[in-house]
Amino acid sequence: MARLSPILREALAHIFKKPATQRYPEVKPKVSSGFRGKQTFNINLCISCGLCARDCPAKAIEMVDVEGKMRPLFHLDRCIFCYQCAESCPRGAIKSSEIFELASADKSDLVVKPKEEAANKVG
């Protein structure tokens, strides 16, 4: 009647096993391919159509003037990472990345500017 609980066996066996948790800050987890992380934007493919900004459910994309053309600027503090923008883009200029560590004390860090991305591409 008062048999030992089967979970006791599970708990005892676990002493000799590898922990189920990950040592997160030291060991970075590998996210799956196709993970919806921080956006990357390729300005060379952009045709300034503004579909991404129109379809964004969180209104996180702002069209800004870059050298005379309207380009999307991503406010990641508002972004819900649904990637509707990437789907709406007719040229595939918006891609997801595997960057997920986006916590910041400053909102201005959480802006993906179209110009900087272009500079990075050139550099």
């Binding site: 189920a20 799956s32 196709g34 993970f35 819900i80 990637y83 997801s96």
Partner: peptide, 21 residues
């Protein structure tokens, strides 16, 4: 702990652990 593989499957399938979209 045993629920975690399901969350990993969701991430693999949809690109996110929780909100599938």
């Amino acid at each position: 702990r045993d629920r975690e593989p399901i969350m990993d499957m969701m991430e693999n399938l949809t690109g996110n652990r929780v909100i599938a979209s």
